[in-house]
């Protein structure tokens, strides 16, 4: 009887070990990676069909422009976060039958494409698209253009704040630029060193070649940014562009940090007091002779285009009259 009792204890113990192990893995890691489908996060996720041009209930900014392109229409593509800008451009000045969406993505013959930053830079170099709306390219993307013998032109059309985010319960509200660089270089590893709780800092990075990863490498000014796999139990810091984050800071569980004491709001981006601002560019191949390219770019820089960019949620590069 005692033997059976002990055997049952061992069996139950082994089952409980695996149950606890798997629950621990789920609660510490898996749950964090599951997309939060709260209204706040949903609202800012870039779903193609929510910002389609020429659709009545589309959420993109609709501009009634007198300009209407004819002839060889430039194919537009760009960064995921900037899709509402180039979709709104097509809606404003392109004819209605030029966009083809198959329910999941744009077809090959559509003048509006969606590949995100990496895909758009490759496509502009390869000649698959005419204008890419992106932030600054990575060194690898520039090297690819050079390897292919392609010279790219970059026209700034807007500005966006590059922001640093933490969990809303993190007591740290702001960091200096040097502190952020030291964190990502691995020199500051505990939140207590920057006025926070005694917890490890888990500095998160994005995929190589993505717009925000390229922006972060630029921010680091040549300093190494090793990927940290040891502090996964720490409290995270990440980076993104303001457009993605601002609408969800209240109920999305994250908050943006002030940098050098300046909060990344529209006013501080416009007056250049927020120190980490990226230009949004209209990028095209110098040798591309499509006569509509300068027309599209001029429109983006016009009052109509700049108002569209601001109404979308970014900051224009020009002062609107």
């Amino acid at each position: 009887m005692k033997k059976l009792h002990n055997q049952l204890l061992v069996i139950v113990g082994l089952i409980m070990f695996f149950v606890c192990l798997n629950m621990g893995i789920y609660n510490l890691f898996t749950k964090r990676c599951i997309s939060d489908y709260s209204d706040g996060l949903k609202a800012k996720s870039i779903e193609l069909d929510r910002y389609l041009p020429f659709v009545e209930d589309s959420e993109l900014v609709k501009v009634d422009s007198e300009l209407m392109l004819e002839g060889d229409l430039p194919v537009l593509d760009g960064a995921a976060a900037l899709y509402p800008i180039f979709s709104a451009t097509v809606h404003a000045i392109y004819p209605q039958d030029c966009v083809h969406f198959d329910g999941e993505n744009f077809t090959e013959e559509s003048v509006l494409q969606y590949r995100n930053t990496r895909g758009a830079y490759k496509a502009i170099v390869d000649g698959d698209i005419d204008i890419a709306i992106c932030v600054k390219p990575s060194e690898e993307q520039l090297a690819y253009a050079k390897e292919k013998g392609v010279e790219l032109e970059f026209v700034p059309i807007g500005k966006e704040a590059f922001v640093f985010i933490v969990n809303k319960d993190n007591p740290v509200d702001g960091l200096t630029e040097d502190e952020i660089r030291d964190i990502y270089a691995g020199e500051i590893t505990n939140w207590s060193k920057v006025g926070g709780d005694n917890k490890l800092i888990s500095p998160l990075q994005r995929n190589q070649g993505s717009g925000s990863q390229t922006a972060m490498l630029s921010f680091m000014n040549g300093r190494e940014m090793p990927r940290d796999y040891n502090s996964f139990l720490g409290s995270a810091i990440g980076f993104s562009f303001r457009f993605y984050v601002e609408g969800i800071v209240e109920d999305g569980g994250v908050k943006m940090l002030s940098v050098n004491g300046v909060y990344p709001n529209v006013e501080n981006i416009k007056n250049d007091s927020y120190p980490v601002v990226q230009n949004i560019y209209a990028v095209y191949r110098k040798e591309n002779t499509n006569e509509n390219i300068p027309i599209v770019i001029d429109w983006l820089l016009s009052d109509e285009g700049q108002q569209m960019i601001e109404d979308t949620g970014y900051v224009g590069i020009n002062v609107i009259e």
Binding site: R32, C33, L41, V245, V254
Partner: peptide, 16 residues
Amino acid sequence: LYDKCSIISYIANEPF
């Protein structure tokens, strides 16, 4: 999931 997850979700869902 980690490869595809949103950085914002990952930080927002922090357990600590």
